[in-house]
Nucleic acid binder design. Structure first.
Length: 418
RNA sequence: GUGGGUGUAGCUCAGCUGGCAGAGCGCCAGGUUGUGGUCCUGGAUGUCGUGGGUUCAAGUCCCAUCACUCACCCCA
C-alpha cells in the first residue's frame, strides 16, 4: 500500500514552496497597506451559499463542487471560491450597519472538482481582496491598482490587464436578450446551445476556433450599456490612466461567476499554457441580496497563487537561492553534541539562522551538510575542543578557521551578523 | 465529461527486429583515524505503474486497468 497526493492535487515542497509564501505575501502587501483588514472564513460552507451566490448556471456549481452531507445531515461544500464566504461573513456580523466600505483581504485554499492541467488543480490557492458597501469608481480603480502593484512587487513584467463592463440590472437584460437572439442563429453543439439559455455571456469566451469564427459579429456589451454604466466605466478607465496603469479594453471579457456586474477585469500572462488568467475580479453589486443580505454594492478580486508562481517561473524569477543559514554547527562526539545543541539554541534566540549536523555522520559529511546549508560560518566543536575550552569557527567563503573561546562564541557570532 | 502524449533508480532519461536492468545527476562512504566546495575510487537504491495474455524467453509484443501530463470543456 502506498499513497500519493489525491488526483488533481500537488504538494508544495522546498525550495519551490518558498515562492508560494512569497507570492501570498507579495500579492496581499499592497492591500494591507491600503487599509484592508484580514479575514479568515471556514474552508466549507452551507452548500446553498454557493448555489445561490456563485450561480446555479455556472459549471462550478453544477459539476465542480465538493459537496457532502455531514454527520448532522447538513449539505456542506468545500469552498470553490472566496467572495461568497466573505459577503456572508460581513452580513452575518452586521458590518453593513457600520462604516462603509468594509475592506478585507484573505488568502486560502479552494476546491473544484476539475480535470487537472497546467495551472488548474482540484485544490488551489488564491489571495483575494474585497471592498463591500460602496459604489465608487475610485474603489474599482483602487482594487485594480492594488493587484497591479502586487504583481509588480513580485517582479512580474508581463502581466496584462484586460478590462470590460458587464452592465447592471438595468441594461444587462436587454443585452442578454440581444445576445441570445444572435447566438440562437448559430451552428453550435448541444451543451453550448443550453448555455445560451442559462448563461449566454459565457459563450463569448469559448476557445474553439469554429465557435469564435461565428462570434465575429456578436453584439457587444459596450454597445448596450446604459448611461450610468457608461459614465461609471469611463470614470474607472480615467482613474486608471491617471495613475499610469495600462490596460486593454476587451469587450468579450466575461466572468465565470453569475454575480458580476459593471467593472470586470482579468490579469493574464502568456507563460502558463492554456490557463492564462493569473487573476480576475470585478464588481458584484447584487450578490449580497442574492444570499439574503441588504443591498451592498461591492468590488473585489482573486489572484491565483499557483498560477502566479508559474508566471514568475516563466519570467525566470525563481532562480534566486532561498534564504541561507548564517551558521551551521558541527558537533564531534556525544559530549560536544550536548554543548553544541545549547549553543545553537542560544544563537537562534539571538536571531540568527542556525542549523546543525544531526545523525551520526563523519566530519566530512557534516562539513558537506554545512556547505549545502549555505551558511557563512561553520562552528565546529569536538570533545578535544571542549577540553581546551575553544570552538573552531570556520568562514566557509574564505576557508579561514580560527579558534575562539566557547564562552564567547555567541557574542562573536552575534557581532558578525549585527 | 472528451481527446492526445507519457509511465524504467530520489531526479532527468537511454534501453535496436523479444535474449543477464543501464547512464548522468543526486545520495552515502573512502582517499584525508577532526574539516565543505574541485578531483579520484567505491557503494546503496528498481514489483521496468498494475493485472492478465502470447512466447523456451517480455522493460520490449497484445489486451485491460490505473496514474501522470497537455489540450478541449470550465475557470483564478
Amino acid at each position: 500500500m502506498s499513497f500519493q497526493a489525491p488526483k488533481g492535487t500537488f504538494d508544495w515542497m522546498p525550495p519551490r514552496s518558498e515562492w508560494a509564501l512569497a507570492v501570498r505575501d507579495g500579492l496581499s502587501a499592497p492591500a494591507r497597506r491600503a487599509g484592508y483588514g484580514y479575514i479568515e472564513t471556514p474552508a466549507f460552507e452551507d452548500t446553498r451559499l454557493f448555489s445561490r451566490g456563485v450561480g446555479e448556471s455556472t459549471d462550478i456549481v453544477t459539476k465542480e463542487m465538493y459537496t457532502f452531507e455531514d454527520k448532522g445531515g447538513r449539505s456542506i461544500t468545500l469552498r470553490p471560491e472566496g467572495t461568497a464566504s466573505v459577503v456572508r461573513a460581513v452580513i452575518e456580523h452586521g458590518l453593513p450597519g457600520g462604516p462603509l466600505p468594509v475592506k478585507l483581504w484573505y488568502s486560502g485554499s479552494y476546491y473544484r472538482y476539475e480535470r487537472a492541467q497546467k495551472g488548474r488543480y482540484r485544490h488551489f490557492s488564491q489571495v483575494g481582496a474585497e471592498a463591500l458597501g460602496a459604489e465608487d469608481p475610485a474603489l474599482d480603480a483602487e482594487l485594480i491598482l492594488l493587484a497591479v502593484d502586487g504583481y509588480a512587487g513580485l517582479g512580474l513584467r508581463n502581466v496584462r490587464l484586460l478590462l470590460n463592463s458587464l452592465g447592471c440590472r438595468e441594461c444587462r437584460p436587454a443585452y442578454r436578450a440581444a445576445l441570445q437572439e444572435f447566438l440562437r442563429g448559430l451552428d453550435l453543439d448541444e451543451p453550448t446551445r443550453q448555455r445560451i439559455e442559462i448563461n449566454p455571456l459565457r459563450v463569448l469566451d469559448d476557445k474553439r476556433p469554429d465557435v469564435q469564427a461565428q462570434l465575429a459579429d456578436a453584439p457587444l456589451v459596450v454597445d448596450h450599456l446604459c448611461e450610468s454604466c457608461k459614465a461609471y466605466h469611463e470614470e474607472v478607465r480615467g482613474l486608471l490612466s491617471d495613475v499610469g496603469v495600462s490596460y486593454t479594453d476587451d469587450p468579450r471579457l466575461v466572468r465565470g461567476l453569475d454575480y458580476y456586474t459593471r467593472t470586470t477585469f482579468e490579469f493574464v500572462h502568456d507563460g502558463l499554457g492554456a490557463q492564462s488568467a493569473v487573476g480576475g475580479g470585478g464588481r458584484y453589486d447584487g450578490l449580497s441580496e442574492m444570499i439574503g443580505g441588504p443591498p451592498l454594492p461591492s468590488v473585489g478580486w482573486a489572484l491565483g497563487v499557483d498560477r502566479t508562481v508559474l508566471a514568475m517561473e516563466a519570467e525566470g524569477l525563481l532562480a534566486e537561492r532561498p534564504a541561507a543559514m548564517d551558521v551551521f554547527a558541527v558537533p564531534l562526539g556525544e559530549e560536544a553534541r550536548r554543548r553544541v545543541f545549547a549553543l545553537v539554541t542560544e544563537l537562534r534566540r539571538a536571531g540568527l539562522s542556525v542549523d546543525m549536523a544531526f545523525g551520526r555522520r563523519g566530519v566530512k559529511g557534516a562539513m558537506k551538510a554545512a556547505d549545502r546549508s549555505g551558511a557563512r560560518y561553520a562552528l565546529i566543536i569536538g570533545d578535544r575542543d571542549l577540553e581546551a575550552g575553544a570552538a573552531q569557527l570556520k568562514d566557509l567563503t574564505t576557508a579561514e578557521q580560527t579558534a575562539v573561546p566557547i564562552a564567547e562564541v555567541v557574542d562573536i557570532l552575534k557581532g558578525k551578523f549585527s
